[in-house]
Amino acid sequence: MSTVAVLKGDVHAEGVGKTIDTTTLLLPTNVRAKPGRCVVLRGPNGSGKTTLLRIIGGLLEPTVGTATIGGVRADERLPSIRAAVGALIGTPTTYRDLTLIDHLVLIDSTWGRDPDTSDARGLELMGQLGIEHLHDRFPHELSSGQQQLFRLALTFSRPATVVLLDEPEQRLDTGKREVVTELIRERARAGATVVMACHDPAMTKSLATSVVDVVPAR
């Protein structure tokens, strides 16, 4: 048995930037977020929002600056960081031989939650996103919008003190964007720190406690 420190959701990114060779992906940027708050990253395509999220989540080493979560350097290799950060950045790989509900039960079980109520939790989350009727589908049997909702369900099915979302609104219609907005708000109310890149003004207005404008390198 091993023990993992439970980190608070304090996100501090101080002057973090990323340059590979001569190409600057992200100019030095500051992000600060406290538990229960939602920081929205705005900026044109290519300004470095995804790079910034990857740095905050410890998936990418910044060239300059430092990023911490709960006072610990953001490095995905640390179990405490992995335990703290739930992220939807890019496309998570799914199991082609598991149905949607199986995925949620699998994730739920690996976090040591009560097995007796695991199915109910998975179905409830799918219900909140309006995809409970798809519970016995395989991932390859979903439309692009349904796949996005499923990815959000995967992200929200694990516990996290920091939630990082890269354009959660993509491929969703207006109604589903409102559903997702409510779900994110619920996570923030429950004490999670949310940092998300978003191009939807309505979602930004509804959720953002602060906005960081990411300036493109050129």
Partner: peptide, 14 residues
């Protein structure tokens, strides 16, 4: 398709 993954402990569920 109708078979379900049964929830259990982290190791066993894998």
């Amino acid at each position: 398709r109708r078979a379900r993954l049964r929830a259990s402990g982290p190791f066993r569920v894998i």
